[in-house]
Design a binder for these strands. Structure first.
Lengths: 342, 342
DNA sequence: ATTGGCACTTGCGGCGCTAGAGTGCCAGGT
DNA sequence: ACCTGGCACTCTAGCGCCGCAAGTGCCAAT
């Protein structure tokens, strides 16, 4: 694209991001940074429209950047604010210092995304079953129940109540626990299943019920930990172009049903090329042509991976939001590396 | 109030609940169940308006029940559908059968409230620390960490990673675990604190760090379990009178900030007189004069208490919603009594 | 006490108009 | 060859107006 066209597209986009209104040749000329008359600008605008970067809502309105227009801006024209990163790091350091658990950390990360961008923050963590068992412990709870605790790789901790086999003393239970621990330690999921099955067949331990419970656990992903944190939805509705009941409904539906978001989020998990932007209709979310999604993959130790980012209006300051999402993702990755329970 | 006035108020309310529109004397007369002419009805309506049960938006609109009008309806006129309860029980039995954890159960209850009423379901559980310890176990995780698991009364289970004291073998850790278990078993929170302090002072076990971690745990309420479940918000925006951006914002704010809701919810926790209804401005939520809240307290075994209910439009079918909330609360109470982990 | 009739009030939808904004194109200047 | 002022054209948003429909309050008659 000609340099002249780029300059004009850039100006149009940045004014549009500010105001959200169509921008006309007049204001563009008066704003002065181009040194061109309205008429000249009009010619270029017409060309840009022919190429699909601009769009007129109607004859007597100005031009609005299309999704492609914004895309071009984000890909080629945008300059990220350099000292943005420091500000972000600072804020993150301040607010995300020492969180007790992984869940708490992620929730706070989501809050932080929301408060930095003033849009909706989003943190997703891949639903993961225990992968490789580091430790298994059975703890007697009552005469009818026993608590199974599993510590898996990446310090994931999961627990579940199982039915206690009749006529098994605490003493015996402890022995079974030790035995199972030896049996299942360092096994991955498939191996755990196999060995449990084998154990059940021979049933030397006479605790078929218990083993069944364990097996069922390893079958189903642990659904008790919801895995999508969303913060600051309400801020979206402060943007006039999103404060439309139709859009509101769609947004709420997306947040509540989650499947649509998950599809998007999983796309990002595939390739790990930093921050990914979906502008307007680029994500396939229906009725949400006015929103953009900015996501990045993050990665904790062993088996913890996920995606985080923000959902905001199509006209967001990408040059601010992109580094925010990027930094937060890195930060979260770093924090997850530390000492954190699951 | 005169029987005639009651009948008319009742008719107005039930038409209003259906349509959401002001109801005029004409339709009321034509509807036929009163056997009176529009003129007569008008007289009574004027009287009802003077008493504050009705309100005209303007001269040429019909009458709309005020909050007091609806209140009177709910308190004195309403007849709850008798076989409603069966339907509800049935649906609950079907969907809430065996949930693995307390959290899962409560979340499902919230979903169920939402799907039965088509409004937003709400379940709150009182944030509670462990009360009386039934069992404490220390599990070695790595060379630097140890997992503490506490089983408390009511089968509440909580776990936390603590720093592992240096130079303590798995063997020793197990002994410490047994010792601590003996020491702290059956103690309430205050007693736990006291004994831990005492133990730290003498420090016979040489594991000050570990004890400190435990103590800090018992100080702070366990914040990692968020305690308010909300489902089906989006359904609210299908009601035309709530699909107003102003109201949407307020609703979202209430759901996100939670303090306002908690204040309401705690009011209900105080007295346990079954279902409680807040109509329109009766709850002090700003900008939400168009919504009503129906809540009931529920109660699990030992120390688990909470409030659940729905948030819906002011014009909801109270005669349907009240039994739904009531039954769900009883049901949840019953289920919590069963075998469920925390 | 009830009711039909009538005058009065009020919001709402449709219509036409104007002002303002912005464009496209052309002809003339550099 | 490119830029620019000018002009005719188009479209929308806002305003005022009007008439319709709905509903009321009151009164006189039953």
């Amino acid at each position: 694209m000609k340099e002249r066209q780029e300059r004009i597209l850039g100006e149009i986009v940045s004014i549009y991001l500010e105001t959200g209104q169509p921008v006309g040749s007049r204001v563009l000329a008066e704003q002065g940074r181009l040194g061109l008359s309205p008429a000249s600008i009009r010619n270029v605008m017409a060309e840009l429209e022919r190429r699909g970067y601009l769009h007129s809502p109607h004859t007597s309105a100005g031009r609005v950047p299309t999704d492609s227009g914004l895309r071009y801006f984000v890909d080629s024209l945008m300059v990220v604010d350099a000292n943005m990163r420091d500000t972000i790091e600072q804020s993150l350091t301040q607010h995300l210092q020492d969180e007790a658990s992984k869940r708490a950390l992620l929730r706070r990360a989501s809050d932080e995304l929301a408060s930095l961008t003033h849009f909706a923050g989003l943190v997703w963590v891949r639903e993961s079953n225990f992968s490789r068992i580091l430790r298994l412990e059975l703890i007697p709870v009552s005469s009818s129940q026993v608590l199974a605790v599993i510590v898996a790789e990446g310090n994931q901790i999961q627990n579940r109540l199982l039915q206690r086999p009749a006529h098994v003393s605490d003493e015996q239970l402890h022995r079974i626990s030790v035995r199972l621990n030896e049996l299942l330690c360092d096994c991955d999921l498939a191996e755990v299943q196999r060995r449990l099955q084998h154990e059940m067949d021979s049933d030397r331990l006479q605790v078929r019920k218990l083993l069944e419970g364990l097996k069922r656990w390893s079958d189903a992903p642990n659904e008790s930990q919801s895995d999508l944190f969303v913060s600051g939805q309400r801020q979206l509705f402060d943007m006039p172009e999103l404060a439309v009941i139709e859009t509101v409904r769609s947004l709420m539906a997306a947040f509540e049903e989650k499947e649509q978001l998950l599809r998007l989020v999983e796309q990002v998990e595939q390739d790990d090329t930093g921050v990914k932007v979906f502008i307007g209709s680029e994500h396939a979310l229906v009725n949400m042509e006015q929103v953009s999604v900015v996501l990045s993959r993050y990665e904790g130790p062993e088996n913890i991976v996920g995606t985080l980012g923000v959902i905001g209006p199509r006209r967001m300051h990408y040059e601010r939001v992109l580094p925010i999402v990027d930094c937060t993702a890195r930060w979260v990755s770093r924090m997850l590396g530390g000492n954190i329970d699951g």
